[in-house]
């Protein structure tokens, strides 16, 4: 199986450790991972902000960069959702049947990390060790767009040393919403304040999620309020092993 990593522009730029964790994890499970260097961004920011013509070249770029792989793995539910749900919309809207066909071939092979591990590789125990008290925030797009269900939690439960604690009102949105956080900054901040309160109430030391964008937002709030609670992408916890634990 030829596996490609779609690292996402956000992880590439701000959270390289998340991408490295995906690579380390999959290699530990016996798979070789490629990083097609032509990749950039799925176009979600443009699409979600209404700039569809600007998003179209990114759809084309994505289809070109990942054509020929059996599976594309990404540490982002939101970006996987963009590719699977909306790339086709753009190709069709701008009258590009060949691109639409390419999207149709590629999109079903694009997997968010927990989907790939559980559904494609069929593993829930990835041999990780992470001796911390962790709470899990199901991001909106993993919950309601990809419907990853309890896959991330099944993976986390199998991690050795971990103490998983419940996050109150876990399924409510953290308030990030991409450019929403700028366009409606006060509402976003109000939602963030509630999420930060719930994360603190969980008494966790680490907040985990499957989207770096939400972690950027919630982590920024946790840091500003000096809660002492850190954030870790799901990939980083699953990649952690005894001895290598940071």
């Amino acid at each position: 199986m030829r596996i490609a990593l779609f690292v996402t522009c956000l992880c590439d730029t701000l959270y390289p450790q998340t991408g490295k964790a995906v690579v380390a994890l999959l290699e530990r499970l016996g798979h070789r991972v490629d990083f097609p260097r032509a990749q950039t961004c799925c176009g979600q920011m443009h699409f979600n902000t209404g700039y569809r013509p600007e998003a179209l070249p990114l759809v084309r770029g994505f289809a070109d960069a990942f054509a020929g792989y059996d599976a594309v793995v990404t540490p982002s539910a939101s970006c996987a959702g963009m590719v699977r749900e909306h790339h086709r919309t753009l190709a069709v809207q701008y009258g590009e049947p060949e691109l639409a066909a390419a999207v149709d071939r590629l999109a079903p092979r694009v997997h968010e990390l927990s989907e790939f591990l559980v559904d494609v590789l069929g593993v829930t125990d990835v041999g990780a060790y992470f001796p911390h008290r962790v709470t899990y925030h199901p991001t909106c797009h993993s919950l309601r767009m990809l419907r990853t269900g309890d896959r991330p939690l099944r993976l986390l439960r199998a991690v050795r040393g971990i103490e998983l604690v419940e996050l109150p009102e876990a399924e409510s949105c953290c308030g990030f919403g991409g450019t929403f956080a700028l366009k409606n900054a006060e509402v976003s901040a109000a939602m963030l304040a509630d999420k930060v309160r719930q994360v603190s109430a969980s008494r966790a030391d680490v907040l985990c999620a499957a989207d770096s964008s939400c972690l950027l937002h919630i982590g920024g709030g946790l840091s500003r309020l000096r809660t002492g609670i850190g954030t870790r992408h799901l990939a980083e916890i699953l990649a952690a092993t005894e001895g290598a634990e940071r």
Binding site: C11, T13, P16, G19, A181, A185, L216, G221
Partner: peptide, 24 residues
């Protein structure tokens, strides 16, 4: 415009090496 973001959130400084650069 990013000031609206940083009004209620800290942001980690970008790392010295991006994923892309690390891979390379």
């Amino acid at each position: 415009p990013l000031a609206r973001w940083s009004a209620s959130r800290d942001t980690a400084a970008p790392p010295r090496e991006t994923f892309r650069a690390w891979w390379r």
